[in-house]
Design a protein around this nucleic acid. Structure first.
Lengths: 336, 336
DNA sequence: CTGAAAGCGCTTACAG
DNA sequence: CTGAAAGCGCTTACAG
């Protein structure tokens, strides 16, 4: 492949001029620019990204760090981020690091990111303290999604609000015995989403003077199958609740399956409401609190690119709104 | 951050020796290596990836090109590929290019990949002729998944075999009026999966002397929602089939939803079999032909890395086996 | 086993 | 508006 010097010779100018002309920098005469473009096209010249990165210090690559690519939420975030990055001529270096605790320490180490990316997008990942320090010392823009961090801006939804809204929807329909299926078997301080959603449920119940029976709050691991398991447990009891709030649609779909297995009709025998508006929610008529996942990926990326461009983006938390989507899985209780 | 020269000075050796020692190259005395390692650790030295790429011509980055990250199948492939690449010290540059026809031409252009990656993984993407040429001219290893290409090795399943196997399962149960829901509204020669799967169904029917009524073969777009739509159409008729083969589990889940809406019991009134073994298949008791998606991502990546290492991997198509997973969505027809 | 030096292919002040 | 030259930070024959 041809190098910048070949183009310079062909156009009869210096390599500096070729560099300026091809990047659209000002202070190049139209005539010269045309000559250079013609030569570059003729020679099928493409600048070597490694060489220009070394010289300029810019890679035009953004690191995108996720715990899983296979979960609906993360795939949506990646999709939104990738779209905006591509529009702006940036590339995506994907780090699918897993969510394992200590053993991940080595995965996100300095050699992975150092000098390799211009900025980092951290998608709903509970960072270890060492990782947080590392990211700080990289001294490049960082934006997080889902999990606020004092060091950087964050885009997220109001987790507390989602389950509040879901719970109040059920209360508004007349339910009083309401169960909750959460998404974390091992509550941890550094990943607030599960705790926040659980608290949203309890807050709403308390505000309306309703009791929460300890046995009607159960925990899964966010997957549909665990929703089935804990759903069977919760709905299999004689004193089962008349309605259930699930911390995610994937859990809620598991609960719908559990209801079906137990011969319970939805919504006549039990109402179910989820969080997310997953692709499958519409299929199963699941009432849910919709969150704009792809759009959160886009927003975070726009913020990140502003920071790359030198703008001060602060450390604010941007909270995007969620909306109640009414379908057929919720209705007033039949025996009030 | 410190440069190689700082380490060289601190260790009292040349930069060439630092480079060799740190990369574990032979012909460095243990004593020297120890000195260098100590100095590097002390200075927290990390080699600049751009500088070493420019000097060596190797980036240790692999381009992973997909049409979508949000579909189950692609997320699984990415996950498997990413895992193997990380184990071998390679990075993932993700290209989420979309599946739009002509307008994608510009997306996968030479500047995206040229000198940026050591190899490319093409995940179930119908390449345009221009893209194919471009990839060839890059002169780096390429492996495809799902769609065979004469230029490169491919990892895939036997698409024909999946629907054959699914159809023969239904025939074995005694069904004779069997419908088919395919995954492509616009059949195209360059993406053989939809056509192969449809043919597998027809072949199996023909082999057993069974008729395929034209009206019992309908097409969706792979999504669960389109499965619902065409499922309502297919199962809503008085002469509906007693069993349905779906080209994917996502379509099959839509059909299950259609059956439910129509008040049909599964499997008593209609049997349904899918392809994939999607996460949700187990939840809904869907009988299916399982394909190992993550493993296909891993296999293709191992093949790619062999080629990067200089081994001749040929242009073979590796076909990985699929297996029938029996659940509760299929049974003998009630009125034979 | 080790070092001096060229080279990878750009970009960027600096000078004009 | 344009060019000569230094520099980005490594790796790699080559020589010893």
């Amino acid at each position: 492949m041809s190098r910048i010097e070949d183009v310079a010779k062909a156009a009869g100018v210096s390599t500096a001029t070729v560099s300026r002309a091809l990047r659209g920098l000002p202070k190049v005469s139209e005539q010269t620019r045309a000559k250079v473009l013609a030569a570059a096209t003729e020679l099928e010249y493409v600048a070597s990204p490694t060489a220009s990165s070394l010289a300029s210090g810019k890679t035009h690559v953004v690191g995108v760090v996720v715990p899983y690519v296979t979960r609906w939420y993360f795939a949506g975030l990646i999709s939104g981020a990738s779209e905006v990055l591509r529009e702006h001529g940036f590339h995506v270096l994907l780090f699918d690091v897993g969510d394992e605790g200590p053993q991940r320490a080595l995965l996100l180490d300095s050699r992975m990111l150092f000098k390799r990316v211009d900025a980092v997008l951290v998608l709903s990942l509970r960072l270890h303290e060492a990782e947080r320090e590392l990211l700080c010392r990289l001294n490049i823009p960082v934006v997080t999604v889902g999990v606020p961090d004092p060091n950087w801006p964050c885009v997220r939804i109001d987790d507390l609000g989602t389950t509040q809204q879901a719970t109040e929807h059920l209360i508004g329909l007349g339910h009083t015995r309401i169960g909750y299926i959460g998404g974390d078997t091992v509550p941890s301080m550094d990943f607030p989403t599960p705790a926040d959603r659980a608290r949203g449920f309890r807050d709403a119940m308390a505000r309306h003077g309703l009791d929460v029976e300890p046995s009607s709050v159960v925990m899964g691991d966010w997957s549909p199958l665990s929703g089935l398991t804990v759903g069977l447990e919760l709905l299999g009891r004689p004193d089962r609740p008349t309605a259930v709030v699930a911390a995610s649609d994937e859990l809620a779909l598991g609960i719908l399956a559990a209801a079906r297995q137990l011969g319970l009709r939805v919504p006549q025998d039990v109402s179910v409401v989820g969080i997310d508006d997953h692709e499958m929610a519409e299929l199963y008529g699941l009432t849910t609190i919709a969150q704009p996942v792809v759009e959160q990926g886009r927003m975070a990326t726009r913020l990140l690119l502003s920071a790359v461009a030198g703008l001060d983006t602060g450390h604010d938390v941007a909270t995007v709104p969620t909306t109640l989507v009414l379908r057929t899985s919720t209705a007033p209780p039949t025996q009030p």
